[in-house]
């Protein structure tokens, strides 16, 4: 009965969105500009900003997240003080509310680094936010690899960099992909950290230093600040939900394929 309740709630949410949103979505809606604060027109620029923010975020977060995880597994001995310190600060980082990342991003990226309200500031703020996810999933993926993989590679006189790139990374890839997916989903759905870092502008961004609203900020703005915005907002919400589902599905599919190919 409890299970039915929770699954029911999910269906309720999705069906509501579908009911209100489907009629609004067409190619026009996805590509054309925002008009009358969103009551007319589409969400083209919003999608563009979202993708740019996501790109900045991933370009920074992935190397740092994966690098940090590999440092923990390869460069320091397990159980050392450095590892303890690092895992603890990653845990703490993961528990910080997103709005606080927003505060930090606004102070550091926007003002001190002088990036202003921009796609770049937003992306970097999100990168800080999803970093712990990437570190943890990569770590879990690498640590679950059989130890003799590393042993036999070392016994052949391979350098650490070769062991990492040719032996461990291909094997850990599906796990890293899962972390990537969760990270992308978190970044796409984030609103609070973006309001004060990449701003509200609805026009199409010309550069990474322009302000641009992500799709979740758009939904928020439509629902709260625009009278009669709810139907259009639900259309955007439906788009967001579908994208996230699709990413989840694709990641599962690709990591299955990858495992098949490797074995």
């Amino acid at each position: 009965m409890a299970a039915v309740l929770s699954v029911g709630a999910l269906l309720w949410i999705v069906l509501d969105l579908v009911k209100m949103g489907t009629s609004q979505i067409d190619w026009e809606f996805l590509t054309s500009g925002v008009e009358e604060s969103g009551r007319a027109g589409g969400i083209g620029p919003v999608i563009k900003s979202t993708l740019l923010i996501l790109m900045c975020c991933l370009l920074v977060a992935i190397p740092f997240g994966v690098g940090c995880a590999f440092w923990i597994t390869e460069m320091v001995s397990p159980g050392s003080r450095l590892t303890a310190w690092l895992t603890r600060s990653v845990d703490l980082l993961a528990s910080i509310p997103s709005i606080v990342f927003g505060l930090f991003g606004m102070a550091f990226f926007c003002r001190i680094l002088g990036l202003g309200f921009s796609i770049l500031s937003g992306g970097l703020t999100l990168a800080c936010m999803i970093l712990p996810i990437l570190i943890r999933t990569t770590l879990a993926a690498v640590q679950s690899l059989p130890p003799d993989l590393r042993l036999s590679a070392t016994a052949m006189g391979l350098r650490k960099s070769t062991i990492l790139s040719r032996v461990l990374l291909p094997r850990a890839f599906p796990g890293i992909l899962i972390g990537f997916t969760i990270g992308v989903a978190r970044a796409l759905s984030e609103t609070a950290a973006l309001i004060f870092t990449s701003g509200y502008a609805t026009r199409s961004p010309a550069s990474l230093l322009d302000s641009g609203r992500s799709i979740s900020v758009h939904i928020f703005d439509m629902a709260m600040n625009v009278p009669n915005g709810a139907t259009r907002a639900s259309a955007s919400a439906l788009v967001l939900l579908l994208v996230i589902l699709m990413i989840n599905y694709l990641a599962n599919y690709f990591s299955d394929q990858w495992l098949k190919k490797v074995n």
């Binding site: 928020f220 709810a230 907002a233």
Partner: peptide
Amino acid sequence: RAMELLAGVPSIIFGFWGLTV
């Protein structure tokens, strides 16, 4: 699957749904 899906629904959508329903 349903739980994982529910966990992946963005909070903004929960908020929006709360506001309208």
